[in-house]
């Protein structure tokens, strides 16, 4: 009956988050929200920076945690820097040669 065992701190905390759609790196797991009043108690969400990732978005827990990012604003700062700095430099959107 028992399934796979994971340890919250060891396997979740400070792991790399990966976007399931395109494989991009989208942050680190800074904290884990536990719902201890539920029956049974469960992991409710992962916290990365200001963003809360509901547990239902977790796709895989391996050496990194793969999540589905639809509708989550994990790239806020990256996009800000992209639009205000990087995009102004020629060649920002080109693949390297």
């Amino acid at each position: 009956m028992s399934g796979r065992v994971l340890h919250a701190q060891l396997h979740l905390l400070d792991r790399q988050l990966i976007d399931r759609a395109d494989g991009h790196l989208v942050g680190k797991v800074d904290d884990v929200e536990l719902d201890l009043d539920a029956d049974p108690p469960v992991v409710a969400a992962l916290i990365s920076g200001r963003v809360e990732i509901p547990a239902g978005r977790i796709a895989e827990v391996e050496s990194a945690v793969t999540i589905s990012t639809d509708g989550l604003d994990l790239d806020y700062y990256d996009n800000w820097i992209e639009h205000h700095i990087i995009d102004k430099i020629p060649g920002a959107g080109d693949a390297t040669e």
Partner: peptide, 23 residues
């Protein structure tokens, strides 16, 4: 820095996709 913070990094993506790394 990027790996510590979990940011997208590397030259395997276009610069604009790893903007913080390039900055």
């Amino acid at each position: 820095i990027a790996q510590y913070r979990g940011w997208q990094w590397g030259k395997f993506v276009r610069p604009r996709e790893a903007s913080r790394f390039h900055v």
